[in-house]
Design a protein around this nucleic acid. Sequence first.
DNA 1: TGCAACAAGATTGTATCCAATTGACCTGAA
DNA 2: TTCAGGTCAATTGGATACAATCTTGTTGCA
Lengths: 235, 235
Amino acid sequence: MNKMPDPMSEKTTLTDAVHNLLRRAIIEQALKPGMRLPEDTVGDQFGVSRTIVRHALVRLENEGLVVTRRNRGAFVAEPSLEEAKHVFEVRRCLETEVIRLLVERMPSDGYDRLAAHVRSEQTVQGKDGPVSIRLAGEFHVLLAELTGNHVLARYVSEVVLRCSLIMAMYAKSHSSDCAVDEHSQIIAAIRDGDTGRATRIMEHHLGAVAGRAELEKKPDSVQSILSRYGKELAS
Amino acid sequence: MNKMPDPMSEKTTLTDAVHNLLRRAIIEQALKPGMRLPEDTVGDQFGVSRTIVRHALVRLENEGLVVTRRNRGAFVAEPSLEEAKHVFEVRRCLETEVIRLLVERMPSDGYDRLAAHVRSEQTVQGKDGPVSIRLAGEFHVLLAELTGNHVLARYVSEVVLRCSLIMAMYAKSHSSDCAVDEHSQIIAAIRDGDTGRATRIMEHHLGAVAGRAELEKKPDSVQSILSRYGKELAS
DNA sequence: TGCAACAAGATTGTATCCAATTGACCTGAA
DNA sequence: TTCAGGTCAATTGGATACAATCTTGTTGCA
């Protein structure tokens, strides 16, 4: 029955706080795919009422991080391999646009902020922890925000988060070493004004993770395991 | 104090119903940009409690159709011209991807469904009513759904809805005549496997509305008018 | 033994209630 | 007359209470 850590405590509403906490918990794999999220359990944990939790869950459902079944409650999403491909497809599309836009209009402080981010990524390089995963995602969000297009940035943020969840399900390790290096390469290509090269690196960057996920296909959810056993049973 | 029209009455929850009704009302311009949406007023109108309205408003805010100010309530969104440009930018990006995907994988019943839709658009051609606006938008959503990528379709749906709202604010008339014709041209180009031509038509299609919106800039909302006067006042 | 109907528990769906914040109106003094 | 301050109504933020629905365990019967 812990009290809420009172995050920011300022002008942010309780719903926002719970929303952010749940999202972080999902991304960092504290809450694993398929896990149930009963409203009053979550509410008790955070010291808020079900009303708040419900609102937060609605938002998370919109973001594709949880799914809710009528009268059954909310669960951490278990994206299928097909859905995963769809998410990556959209992500590739959006991030290509981000690069195009940045090549033609990178803000003045853009490269500084990118460099700072890469540095902070390097400090945790090698450690395969939640922090590493989060930072790798935030690099892409930062790129999107630098376009100045907040709508685009929001969608990029969403697909990046969903990709984190997908990686959590299907990939064995995030192996962020190559990622940081490729991040630097992308920045360099954008600075050179070389849209093609930047896009190619980005596609390789995303393709690598997507491809790895597909190869190491590791569906250990209750549902998928039982469906396999169910097929044996039917024969 | 009308009772809810009991929409579908099936397995859909009250929140869903209110959500859909409000969304339609906004898109069809029954609820104009900037208009307040007091929770209990809406609740009384639909015969449901504030709780339901609250949940619906949370969803609408996620879709970018309403904005809520802390302790002030919800308002129909008034996208700025900058935000409008951003939405169109994202929309162009997504719809280009839709065309690329359809050229390489159009489902077997795709052209039939598209043809049927265009026919229904033609039946209301000329009339500049809400139905015409809605159908024009649904054409693009249908295109996106035919890709089989539900994630993509969902994002397209969102930006199309926001574009409807933008047009409601900034364009004098939707002038759907040319739109229907261009829809047919896009279908033809996709069928020919001519990605370039289809994309060009789509860009023209979107560019036309976006451009027109910018030219006929008609910000008659209370907020925007007062902001102009406010600047005069400040000088 | 296996299946079906039933009943109890748990969880969500919805409504109502209280508290906190905001905006407007009103009053009063410079 | 204008502006500052204070009070009050209106509205949202949040919590609790009740109803509907699903899950699950149990019991009875074939």
